[in-house]
Structures are given as structure tokens and as C-alpha cells.
Simulated assay, not measured.
Amino acid sequence: MDRGAGDHSRIIEMAWEDRTPFEAIERLYGLNEQAVIKLMRRELKAGSFRLWRARVSGRKSKHQALRDPRIERGYCKTQYKHR
């Protein structure tokens, strides 16, 4: 499926967010974890990609099955500030 630059930008933003699990990206955009990794490798600079991989590897919040079941949302309610 061909995605626009806006979709790529949002997927990258969601992938960087600590509280957004890969499953949420898959539900919204149809990309599983491996596809997100490929997109990130292609779209980010090499150093940024390495930082991101180190950051999300093994992080419980990035995998729905590893998260505390009491967490029902993919982002912090104060994450998006409205003016």
C-alpha cells in the first residue's frame, strides 16, 4: 500500500512515542512491527535509527502484550496540548 508523506510522518511520530504500542500502528496503518522497523530504517538518518532501535528494543510499553493491562490508551492524556 502506497502511503503519503503525512502518513509516514505520523507513523514515525507514533513509533518514537514511548506509550504508543506497535499494535496501535498496525491497527491504524496496517504495518506490523517489522514493517515499521523497515520504514524507520529507510526514512531516518542512520544515527537516528540506531538511537530509536536502542530506545524501543525490549521496551514493554511498545508491545501491547507486555504492557500492564490497566493501561487502556496508547498515549498519555496530557501528551497533546491544546491552545
Rank of each mutant, 00 (worst) to 15 (best):
R59P: 12
F22Q: 02
G74W: 00
R70D: 06
A24T: 15
S57A: 11
V56S: 04
E43K: 14
K77N: 01
Q64V: 09
K60T: 15
E26V: 01
R3P: 10
P69Q: 01
M40D: 09
K77M: 00
G58H: 04
L44S: 06
H82K: 09
R73L: 00
G4C: 11
F22E: 03
H63A: 02
R53Q: 12
R42T: 10
E17S: 10
S48Y: 04
F49Y: 15
P21D: 08
I71L: 01
D7C: 03
R70A: 04
T20C: 07
S57C: 07
G47L: 07
G30V: 07
T78N: 05
R59L: 11
L28S: 10
S57V: 05
K77Q: 04
F49E: 10
M1T: 08
E23R: 03
T20L: 02
R55N: 12
P21Y: 06
E23Q: 03
C76S: 00
R55G: 11
E72C: 00
R3V: 15
D18Q: 08
F22T: 08
L31P: 03
R53A: 09
L44I: 07
I25W: 00
A54Y: 06
A5K: 15
I12H: 02
K60A: 09
R19W: 09
S57E: 11
H63G: 02
S48D: 15
N32T: 13
R42S: 15
R59F: 06
C76P: 00
W52E: 02
F49A: 03
K81E: 08
I71T: 05
D7Q: 14
I25C: 03
E13Q: 09
L44Y: 05
E17N: 13
W52Y: 11
W52K: 02
W16Q: 13
R42L: 11
R70H: 01
R55A: 11
Q34M: 08
A24R: 08
S48M: 13
D18T: 09
E23N: 02
G6M: 11
R55T: 15
G74I: 00
K60S: 13
M14N: 09
A24N: 09
R42Q: 14
I12R: 11
G30K: 04
E23V: 01
K77Y: 03
K81L: 08
V56K: 02
E72F: 02
D68Q: 01
E17D: 13
S48E: 13
R50G: 05
R3N: 12
H63I: 10
E13N: 05
F49P: 03
F22Y: 10
R83N: 03
A5N: 13
